[in-house]
Each structure stands twice: as C-alpha cells, then as structure tokens.
C-alpha cells in the first residue's frame, strides 16, 4: 500500500502555502475584506479551526513560539489538540505564556495581556460573513459589501433595541474596519472588541469551511457598530476573579453545586496564573462552603 507518512513542514504543501500567503497579503491590504481562498481539507474537522490552522501553517517558521487557546484557556481539549498538531508537523516551540508567543491561535477570546508588535493573533472563524444571518446568500452579501450597503445591519441592531431595550448581540458583535468594511470579529464576546482597535499586533482571521481569510493590520480603526442613543458597551462583571482578584477581565462562571453555588474565574488562564504567581489572590470560596 502507498507510503502514507510523508508530510511537509507544517503539513501544507508549498504550493498551498503560497496560495494562502498571497491571500493573506491581499487581506492585509484591504482591511476587513474577506478574501476567498482555496481552503484545503485538513486532517481535522471543518468548524474545529481548519481556517486558523491553515493560516498558522502558512506563516509559521522554525523561530516561532506558538500559543493556542480556546475559550481563553490553553488546556481546553481542542487547543491541546491543535497545539499538538503543530508540535508534530512543524516541530515548533510552544508556550502558554501570552508574552512569549510570536503567534497566538485563538478561538472565542483575545488575551487580556496587551499584544505587542512582534505578535500575530490568528482567529479561528466559523462564519466570516457578518451579514450572513440577515442575508444567507453569498451572491447578495458580496454586493452589499461592494456597495458599502450596511443598512440591514443597523436595522437588525435597532430591532434589538426596539424589542429588548438594548442591543442584544453579546458575541460576534459586528465592527467596521478602517472606516470601510463591516467585519465579523469571530465569536469573541463583545468584551474583547475594544482590544482589536489600534492593536500593536497584526490580526489574521481564517475560515476554512467558508474558505475566507481576512485581516486587521496593526494600528487600524476597529469600531463596534452602535447608535448615538445606544452606544456600544462591553460586559461588566460585578465581582473580581475568585482566584486572582482581577477586575476588568472576562470571567467564566463555574458552577460549584446544585444549590446555586458558583464562582467566577478568569477566562484567560495564563493571565490568571501569572497574577497568582505575582501574589494576587481572590476570594476563592473554601472547599467546605462549596460542598
């Protein structure tokens, strides 16, 4: 039977990498515009980060240090799996420390730590089209982007206000990039939207199943859509992290028992660990109280 075990550095063949690299350069040149690319079938399922993996595989080199997070955490199973994939096929150094990483692949979060110029943030994107749930047809949404016709999006947000008294979009909250394209920031909570604005780091977005790559260059305006009387605002948590006492960070709710007992802890696990190492502590409930 055929010899099955000979894969190129970072899995993708060179021709595929060139194709993706060309798409990335055009994506950077047209901030927020979704560049179609010939997404390959990856050895992991569609919807599980194939776009992000293809982007990372096309940019990664032997000097890179890779961090992979899912829900802000390095130890979630899919993050572990993707990190192990790159260790295997590209033999690259990996880290959980945001500061050390040169490439951070993420699903659903932006690290709390401010990113720097030497870093690239690669987002895994399920549905890249911000207008998709308003208009399912690609042929139509493409026209809307071409004509900069985003009225529908404002109507949708306004209907929210009429019905619920507020904009009820809590994640994948649409943004306008460099004053032109409306873009889906991927399903990050809107809490993270402000971090995209004028970031020092390059942000790349890969959607494998939907075959799109897009980008936000560093120092680029990323504005969350809103209304004068209903300005954009991010989530606020009433309590600090139970483990490290951090405020102004995104928290996960951990259910402790079946009597309503719960605690809130940092979603960004590296940020939380680093703070605890620095001696910060939170009011972690005692084991007895939780039981």
């Amino acid at each position: 039977m055929t010899d099955l075990a000979s894969y190129n550095f970072a899995y993708l063949d060179e021709q595929t990498k060139r194709m993706i690299r060309r798409a990335i350069l055009k994506a950077i040149a047209i901030p927020g515009y979704q560049v179609p690319f010939a997404s390959r079938e990856m050895p992991m399922p569609y919807g599980w980060g194939t776009g992000g993996v293809q982007v990372t595989a096309s940019i990664i080199g032997p000097d890179d240090i890779l961090k992979v997070i899912d829900q802000g955490a390095d130890d979630t199973t899919n993050a572990v799996s993707i990190r192990a994939f790159f260790e295997k096929v590209a033999n690259v150094a990996v880290t959980t420390h945001t500061k050390e990483a040169t490439i951070i692949q993420t699903r659903h979060r932006i690290p709390e730590q401010k990113l720097g110029e030497g870093q690239v943030l690669v987002y895994q994107v399920p549905i890249p089209e911000p207008l998709r749930f308003l208009e399912p047809r690609e042929t139509e949404t493409r026209k809307m982007h071409a004509l900069e016709e985003y009225g529908l999006m404002h109507v949708k947000l306004y209907e929210d206000i009429a019905r619920n008294g507020r904009i009820s979009t809590t994640y994948a909250y649409p943004v306008k990039v460099a004053g032109r394209y409306v873009m889906d920031p991927s399903p990050t909570p809107k809490f993270d939207n402000p971090k995209m604005h004028m970031s020092d780091a390059l942000q790349l977005f890969g959607a494998g199943r939907e075959k799109r790559i897009y980008a936000v260059p560093p120092y680029t305006d990323v504005v969350s859509l809103d209304f004068e009387d209903h300005p954009f605002e991010i989530q606020k948590f009433e309590q600090p992290c139970a483990l490290c006492g951090a405020r102004g960070v995104y928290l996960d709710e951990v259910v402790l028992d079946d009597k309503g007992g719960r605690m809130f802890v940092c979603s960004d696990t590296d940020h939380c660990e680093e703070r605890r190492e620095e001696g910060h502590t939170g009011e972690m409930p005692s084991q007895e109280a939780a039981e």
Binding site: E14, R21, L25, S58, I59, G61, A215, P217, P218
Partner: peptide
Amino acid sequence: DPVFQSQSVFRKLMDGMAR
C-alpha cells in the same frame, strides 16, 4: 532551502504589508 527561505521572506513581506 525553499521551505524555510520562502517562509522567512514571506514573514518579512507580511510584516511589511502590515506595517
């Protein structure tokens, strides 16, 4: 060494386009 040289040049191009 096409695999690594092209990666290195590309990263500079990517950085160049981004900055």
